[in-house]
Amino acid sequence: MKDWRPKLAAIDDPIADDYWSYETRDGTRRTSRVTIGRPAPLADKRDWFCPILFEHVTEGIYYSYGVGPVDALMNAMYFVRRRFYALKEVQPRAKPTAGSKRRKESKRNEAARSKTKKRAAAPKGTG
């Protein structure tokens, strides 16, 4: 039987990316990267998947599935939400630790960020 599951090496098109600091069960503080990828169709073109990378929680990239893109994304967020409430003293927007690897930004993301900065810096017209 052929394995139908996706096999991504990285999440190249994230829709959400953050670092969370939290307390582990043994009481130590840890910082993990949480990345949610854009939903994509499975090979059968009927069902969808959404990749999740939760450093120190998932072994590599984990996938949620759904009957459509919104369903797959809702299932991914449910997975992350359950972890949020299961961990102790979660602090979103934490500073990445020295050992964390920040993914190199894609040119598309750099261009969009540059465009946003230019728009924000432009003087407001009167009218």
Score class of each variant (00 low, 15 high):
S64T: 08
P51N: 10
K124Y: 08
A43G: 06
P14Q: 10
P14D: 06
G66T: 07
V34C: 03
A40Q: 13
L87A: 06
I61N: 08
A86N: 14
P51W: 03
D18T: 13
A9E: 13
K115D: 08
R82D: 13
A16R: 12
I11K: 07
L53I: 03
T28G: 03
K101T: 09
W48I: 01
A10E: 14
L42H: 02
I61E: 04
M77N: 15
G99R: 09
N109L: 13
W4E: 13
G99D: 12
I11M: 09
R82H: 09
P14M: 06
R81V: 00
P69N: 06
S100K: 09
A9G: 11
P123I: 06
A120D: 12
N75H: 15
S21Y: 02
W48D: 00
K107L: 10
D12S: 13
A40P: 00
T126Q: 12
F49C: 07
L87M: 15
G68S: 15
M1D: 06
E89S: 14
Y85A: 06
D71G: 07
K117T: 09
A86C: 08
T116L: 14
S106F: 04
P96A: 01
K101L: 09
R29V: 12
A121I: 01
K7G: 02
N109W: 05
P92K: 05
E89P: 00
P14I: 08
S114V: 02
G68E: 09
Y65M: 05
Y62W: 14
I61K: 08
S100E: 12
D26P: 02
R29L: 09
S106C: 07
P96T: 01
K117L: 15
K104M: 04
I52Q: 03
W48F: 15
R108Q: 14
T97W: 00
G37N: 05
L73D: 00
R33V: 02
I11G: 05
V67G: 14
F54Y: 15
E105K: 14
R5F: 10
E59I: 08
L53H: 13
L8G: 00
M1R: 03
L53E: 07
R38G: 01
T58M: 09
D3L: 06
A9M: 11
S106K: 07
R46F: 10
K88A: 11
R108Y: 09
D13Q: 11
P39R: 05
E89K: 13
L8S: 01
T35V: 15
T35D: 03
K95D: 12
H56V: 05
F54Q: 08
P123K: 14
F54W: 13
T31Q: 07
T58R: 07
I11F: 09
D17F: 03
